[in-house]
């Protein structure tokens, strides 16, 4: 059997790759104009990453499903009315050692790291996600 090789798929997929590049350039240009990063937020992201938080939690729905979604935790825990204090107290109180309940480790974060992490979570809660997550609980 002789195979007829047409170049059409190559042509179409090149078009699609170009479209992807175009959309990527647009997305990359639009985003930094919307989001204002401070050194504290950048440090907070590093605290988030270096403690492998996505090993249990999700952030914007990505990560593990063992512990609650945290992209909206700042608002969930009171926003400007107390989000900072709640999250700080929570992190310091871990682990709860309540039997039969999932345990979060104690990370011994410094005051500086805690503030950075919370600044990062506050910034994350302000990302325009088209009202995702659907509920306050994530």
């Amino acid at each position: 059997m002789k195979i007829k090789i047409s170049t059409k798929p190559i042509y179409y997929s090149s078009l699609i790759v170009l479209l992807l590049l175009g959309l990527t350039i647009h997305t990359t240009i639009v985003l930094p104009q919307r989001d204002h990063l401070t050194p504290q937020i950048i440090k907070g992201k590093m605290v988030w990453e270096e403690h492998n938080c996505i090993g249990c939690h999700t952030l914007l729905g990505e990560g593990a499903y063992f512990a609650p979604e945290l992209s909206n935790v700042y608002e969930r825990r009171g926003g400007s009315q107390g989000g900072i204090y709640f999250i700080k107290a929570w992190l310091k109180a871990m682990p709860t050692n309540i039997p039969g309940r999932r345990q979060m480790p104690q990370f011994n974060l410094t005051e500086d790291e805690l503030n950075a992490l919370i600044a990062f979570l506050k910034w994350t809660s302000e990302i325009n996600t088209f009202s995702w997550p659907p509920s306050e609980k994530g």
Partner: peptide, 20 residues
């Protein structure tokens, strides 16, 4: 090749990139 390249969009719904 023709479907999976832009299929990447299904990871981008709720991470804060434009609505398109």
């Amino acid at each position: 090749l023709t479907t999976s390249v832009l299929g990447i969009g299904h990871h981008y719904y709720w991470i804060g990139v434009p609505e398109y």
